[in-house]
Design a protein around this nucleic acid. Structure first.
Lengths: 107, 107
DNA sequence: TCGTAATATTGCAATATTACGATAATAAAA
DNA sequence: TTTTATTATCGTAATATTGCAATATTACGA
């Protein structure tokens, strides 16, 4: 019990859910927002900016990254991140394709 | 430990996270998709359609409803649901306003 | 090489989510 | 009223998530 039954859904549905999970935590939205405002950033800034421990921020960054929403590269010791806008748009298009069909209401 | 520190984020950020949480489970996306295709539906249909127990479907419906994404009313014994498109668009606009600023990339 | 700065990983405690059987509540039909 | 159909709620087991301290890893500079 208690396990999400992914196998009963289509691939598209599972993918939307996976990306949405990234946005389902305020820390990750705050991180994305900050990065989007900087065009490039440094992870340690995020610790100061957001107010969670370095371990927690790093963990959130990897969740965001695993979903494909970040591009990042090392510049020496530091890691520079930016949004993967293509992936972000993909998500928006997927969402739209699901729910922008209905225009009329029943209630 | 283990509790999301909502108080360190802005209201907007917490709201996006709350709505995104609805989409963060494939069952809820499947439910929304099905409802959007029917323009109105009946909860028991969802049990057959999706393949989860009635209790679980009902629980998911209340999560979606609490986030304001559903309109529903009783028609006799049955409950008729439809999407609250206004709320859905609100979510999309919120998302866009956060991330559609950055056009250039750093990586 | 050694020390330091930056990031990642591990392990764990606290909490949240998911799923379902059992049961309650409600409204129509018999 | 009793039965039946439909939805909601409760209790609980299994699993997932969140957050952090401690530790590991990586890359640079002295």
């Amino acid at each position: 019990m208690g396990v999400t039954k992914r196998f009963i859904y289509t691939e598209n549905i599972n993918e939307i859910a996976n990306i949405a999970k990234v946005f389902a935590h305020p820390a990750r939205i705050a991180i994305l927002k900050y990065i989007s405002e900087q065009e490039g950033c440094i992870c340690n800034d995020l610790v100061d900016e957001i107010g969670l421990s370095q371990a927690t921020i790093s963990q959130h960054l990897s969740v965001i990254g695993d979903a494909g929403l970040l591009k990042g590269r090392f510049e020496g010791k530091k890691k520079c991140y930016c949004l993967n806008l293509e992936r972000f748009e993909e998500f928006q298009i997927l969402l739209n394709s699901f729910f922008n069909k209905t225009t009329s209401n029943c209630c």
